[in-house]
Design a binder for these strands. Structure first.
Lengths: 158, 158
DNA sequence: AATGAGTATGCTATGATATTCCGATTTCGA
DNA sequence: TCGAAATCGGAATATCATAGCATACTCATT
């Protein structure tokens, strides 16, 4: 499990190098935290972890770091949770869809480009030229459908 | 223009009556403000308007009211803007998609049920049973594509 | 090595959005 | 008229995010 985190980190480092951008220690650390979480994490959760690790850190540090990671495609923002999740394919820009379990928080990214195209086409019919798609589907994951009480019962707007 | 607002208000009142829920003065007033805005409005904008009108009002008042209006399907929340917009068809529950102009803020709702079904099917493939879909597409509306400088250049995450 | 431009970080303060909790009032059927 | 449920008022606080400016680092060029 930690292996996959390390793998993703190495991959991100390689991509960053190739692009001529800096995966600094802070950026690397934040990405690592998000990868380890394996589900959407709030900015202030990350901040708390950063503080534990390095003693000090302020909100702007985290948000700047997140801006960078999102810009590079290493991380996605989940709008309906004000949270951040690692991208499953940081190589190339893509349009993804998220399925989010309101019971346990598990969040799965898919990259169905056919769907993405259909959505953009729908918007085009309305005269819009789309640059960014947000697709977040809330419901219950397979595990929680079986055992509803097992979930952590996350709060937040279901 | 105000006619359509009055019409929507009357319709909402009728629906509320039919459902046995109360469209109280505050609720009616907030819905009116959202209808008049014609685009996504923030909760604190509504709060300010409420204060102007009635002297006093606190955040919980607005949020409670919004909860009610959303529950009844009179209003939708735009997650990527933390804002609220009137529904174009409050009669029946539906899954909609939003096209949002990052230049002028114009936001158009569509209710392409075929797309909505395809999205839920995609999530079903991942084992999820979906209860709520969030589809928000950001870009540029027809008007702003013609005259880019005309837009109000809204800030916010594009 | 010294310079300096560009990038990244530290840090204070503040802004913006949202909820909890409790008590008072209103509504409305029995 | 009584009582339960719904609604509203209001203080306090939680949560999420940015502005603005000073400092420090990086690295190619001199």
């Amino acid at each position: 499990m930690a292996d996959s985190v390390m793998g993703s980190l190495a991959k991100a480092a390689a991509i960053a190098k190739e692009r001529g951008v800096a995966l600094t220690p802070i950026r690397r650390r934040v990405l690592e935290l998000i990868l380890k979480a394996g589900r959407p994490v709030g900015a202030y959760d990350l901040l708390a972890d950063l503080k534990t690790a390095s003693g000090r850190a302020m909100p702007p540090t985290v948000y700047r770091t997140l801006d960078f990671l999102i810009e590079q495609g290493f991380v996605h923002r989940i709008e309906s949770r004000n949270a951040f999740i690692a991208c499953i394919d940081a190589d190339s820009p893509h349009r993804s869809q998220f399925a989010i379990c309101d019971s346990c928080g598990r969040t799965v990214e898919s990259m169905n480009d056919d769907l993405a195209r259909k959505l953009s086409r729908q918007a085009a019919r309305l005269g819009f030229k789309i640059e960014r798609q947000i697709v977040e589907m809330h419901g219950t994951c397979a595990v929680c459908q079986e055992a509803p009480e097992a979930g952590l019962r996350r709060s937040h707007r279901a």
